[in-house]
């Protein structure tokens, strides 16, 4: 064996360490899950349950019967994929679409590559993008928050990003879009409809801080993503505020926080070194803003993460981790 083999993370020292990391991720996700259940009610619980059960069950079935290597079943990691997938879906998603998503996440994005640690693309994001292009109507009709703390009837609506995009495409300016839809800039940030995981920035940040304290993740990837988005949108909205949305709006809406804090930081599909992580994050920020400003989709976080996932092996080659025993 080559003594200087650099293997991509996660470095599996023992089964216990991966398990404890994944358990920490589940704990970190719990405030977000709680908030999404409070906001979206029973439908969100159904999505969560279907997603986690089918992800765990599928991984076990594939490892045991299809690949005949039961040791590949990763347990907690499959549960994390299931929870993240649920957080990425609208609460109104029919159960069978959630199952299709689980098949894509576990079957195609994870197990086809050889299971945990081998996959190039983030399984939950892959499933989200697959579902987005496969079931565009169901995946873009987000429910307006309605759950245990709202009490109004469920209404379907577009996300703030979608509303702005549609208005801009029709040649309106941002202030015209806002007045046409009867809202002001502050309401746009408050009444956000979206997937379960996109609803509460506070819960996401709280969970992420827990991960930081437990030293499970490093902050460089999220910081560079959010800083890039802030800088780009500040420049564009500074030049032409009527056609480009500003930093606050771009950071707080859509999947940016969920993506930056929990999806882009996935161990397997992000670069190992700190500087590699910064390059990765800046790339994601750039692509998101290009899609949001110039693309035809209103949101680009999932696409951005997937595109940068492809570059991770390359980034890892360019930024070797510091080797031990060197000055």
């Amino acid at each position: 064996m080559d003594k200087l083999t650099v293997s991509p993370s996660p470095h599996l020292h023992s089964k216990a360490s991966t398990t404890s990391i994944m358990r920490d991720v589940v704990i970190a996700l719990s405030p977000t899950i709680l908030v999404s259940i409070l906001f979206y009610g029973w439908s969100e619980i159904l999505v969560l349950a279907v997603s986690s059960v089918s992800c765990v069950l599928l991984e076990w079935l594939i490892a045991k019967y299809l690949m005949k290597r039961p040791e590949l079943f990763s347990g907690w990691s499959a549960l994390v994929t299931g929870l993240l997938l649920a957080m990425n879906l609208p609460s109104s998603t029919p159960w069978w679409i959630v199952v299709v998503g689980a098949i894509v996440a576990i079957g195609i994005a994870k197990m086809s590559f050889g299971g945990l640690g081998q996959n190039i693309f983030n399984p939950a994001i892959t499933a989200r993008v697959f579902l987005l292009i496969s079931f565009p109507v169901q995946m873009t009709n987000w429910s307006v928050p309605d759950g245990f703390i709202g009490g109004v009837d469920a209404v379907s609506g577009a996300t703030p990003l979608g509303i702005i995009k549609e208005g801009l495409k029709a040649g309106q300016s941002i202030s015209e879009v806002l007045s046409a839809n009867g809202m002001d800039a502050r309401m746009l940030l408050r009444d956000i409809g979206g997937s379960g995981g996109e609803i509460s920035a506070l819960a996401l940040v709280a969970g992420f801080i827990y991960l930081l304290v437990r030293k499970v993740v490093k902050p460089w990837i999220p910081i560079s993503i959010i800083a890039t988005i802030a800088v780009i949108s500040a420049i564009f909205s500074g030049i032409d505020p009527e056609h480009f949305t500003g930093p606050n709006f771009n950071i707080m809406t859509g999947g940016v926080l969920l993506g930056a804090l929990f999806m882009a930081t996935d161990y397997v599909t992000s670069p190992m070194s700190n500087w590699g992580g910064v390059i990765f994050g800046v790339g994601i920020g750039l692509i998101v803003m290009m899609i949001r400003y110039f693309g035809s989709y209103p949101e680009g976080m999932s696409f951005a993460i997937l595109i940068m996932n492809c570059f991770v092996p390359l980034i890892n080659r360019a930024f070797h981790q510091k080797k031990y025993g060197r000055a």
Partner: peptide
């Protein structure tokens, strides 16, 4: 599942 009639 529309993805199957598209490139992916």
């Amino acid at each position: 599942i529309l993805a199957f009639v598209m490139a992916p």
